[in-house]
């Protein structure tokens, strides 16, 4: 069988073809503008990510008045830092303590605070995490390598289309005198979802 035909032939992935079809239909109807689509992609693929959330956490560690504001009105405190946009309209910050660990899930689909964390990782969107986080949080955390003392309570927050959560982990020990940037470098994405803890300084 000659093999040269397909070498010169383009074949679209079926999902790619359907997506192009939708974009053609919506553009013709004036419902979307291709330039606006490109701008949205650039924002979420390249600009917004968990470094934003890390700056919020670092400031909360460093500035008690800000931490208090964050606890009272996270939406306002976070937008004050310039992190605004879709899926960040209504935010709640949940603070870890010595006796309480918070973790976040979206059992419905994949609601997630985009302005501070970017788009969610694959595991956050997986049916396995979405169904098990509520039922057996301790076992799920153990799979992430996080084993908490039995005395530490776990509270699981179920995100909705209206309300998104940001976990504020506890400030690691031996970080006195750290600059805010140095503190932010310790804050991982997982620590802000509650499936991990911040890095400890070397």
């Amino acid at each position: 069988m000659p093999h040269d035909h397909h070498d010169h032939d383009n074949h679209l992935d079926p999902m790619e073809a359907r997506t192009r079809a939708l974009e053609t239909i919506l553009t013709r109807k004036g419902l979307v503008d291709p330039a606006a689509i490109d701008a949205i992609i650039e924002t979420y693929a390249e600009k917004v990510g968990p470094r934003n959330g890390a700056q919020v956490v670092a400031r909360a560690w460093d500035d008690p008045a800000f931490a208090e504001w964050l606890a009272r009105d996270a939406t306002a405190a976070i937008s004050d830092m310039g992190f605004t946009g879709r899926q960040g309209e209504h935010m709640q910050a949940v603070f870890n303590t010595d006796t309480l660990h918070n973790m976040v899930v979206c059992t419905l689909c994949s609601c997630y605070p985009w302005p501070v964390l970017g788009l969610p990782p694959v595991w956050y969107k997986s049916p396995a995490y979405r169904s098990r986080a509520v039922i057996e949080p301790r076992a799920v955390l153990a799979e992430f390598g996080l084993t908490l003392p039995e005395s530490t309570g776990i509270r699981v927050w179920d995100s909705t289309a209206e309300l998104r959560y940001l976990v504020i982990p506890q400030r690691p020990a031996n970080t006195d005198g750290f600059t805010r940037d140095a503190l932010a470098d310790l804050v991982t994405r997982e620590s802000m979802i509650g499936t991990g803890l911040p890095r400890v300084p070397a």
């Binding site: 999902m15 790619e16 689509i37 992609i41 979420y44 693929a45």
Partner: peptide, 13 residues
Amino acid sequence: PFDAPWQAQAFAM
């Protein structure tokens, strides 16, 4: 966060 361009397109639309 996207594995293929169509995923980004579908998300952005």
